[in-house]
Computed example of a mutant assay.
Amino acid sequence: MLTVATLAAVAFVTWAIAGGGQGGGATPVAQVEAWAGALTHTAPEPEPEPDAEPTTAEAGFDLTALSTTDPASPWVVVNKQHPLTPSDWAPDDLVAVDGVQVRAAVATDLEAMLEAAAADGVEILPRDGYRSYAGQAAARAAVEQRRGFEHAERYSARPGFSEHQTGLALDVDSASNPSCDLQTCFAQTAEGRWVAEHGHEFGFLVRYTPENTETTGYAPEGWHLRWVGRDLAGWMHAEGRTSLEDVFGVPGGSTYLEQ
Rank of each mutant, 00 (worst) to 15 (best):
M1D: 07
T3P: 06
A26S: 02
A26E: 01
V29Q: 13
Q31W: 06
G37I: 01
P48F: 13
E49D: 12
A52D: 11
E53Q: 10
T56K: 11
T56I: 06
F61M: 04
F61D: 01
L63P: 03
L63N: 09
A72C: 02
V77D: 00
V78P: 13
T85R: 15
S87P: 07
V95K: 00
V95N: 01
A96L: 11
V100F: 11
R103Y: 12
V106W: 02
T108M: 06
D109H: 14
E111P: 00
A116D: 05
A117P: 04
A117F: 03
G121E: 14
R131D: 10
A137L: 09
V143C: 09
R147I: 03
F149S: 06
F149K: 07
E150H: 06
S156H: 07
A157D: 15
P159L: 01
S162L: 12
G167M: 08
G167D: 08
V172I: 14
D173H: 15
Q188T: 12
Q188G: 07
T189V: 01
A190C: 05
G192Q: 00
V195F: 00
V195N: 00
G199V: 00
F204S: 00
F204Y: 02
F204T: 01
L205G: 00
V206T: 04
E214T: 12
T215L: 12
G217L: 03
P220K: 02
R226K: 10
G229Y: 00
W235Q: 13
H237I: 01
A238E: 15
A238H: 12
L244G: 04
E245Y: 02
F248G: 08
G252D: 04
G253E: 01
L257F: 11
E258I: 10
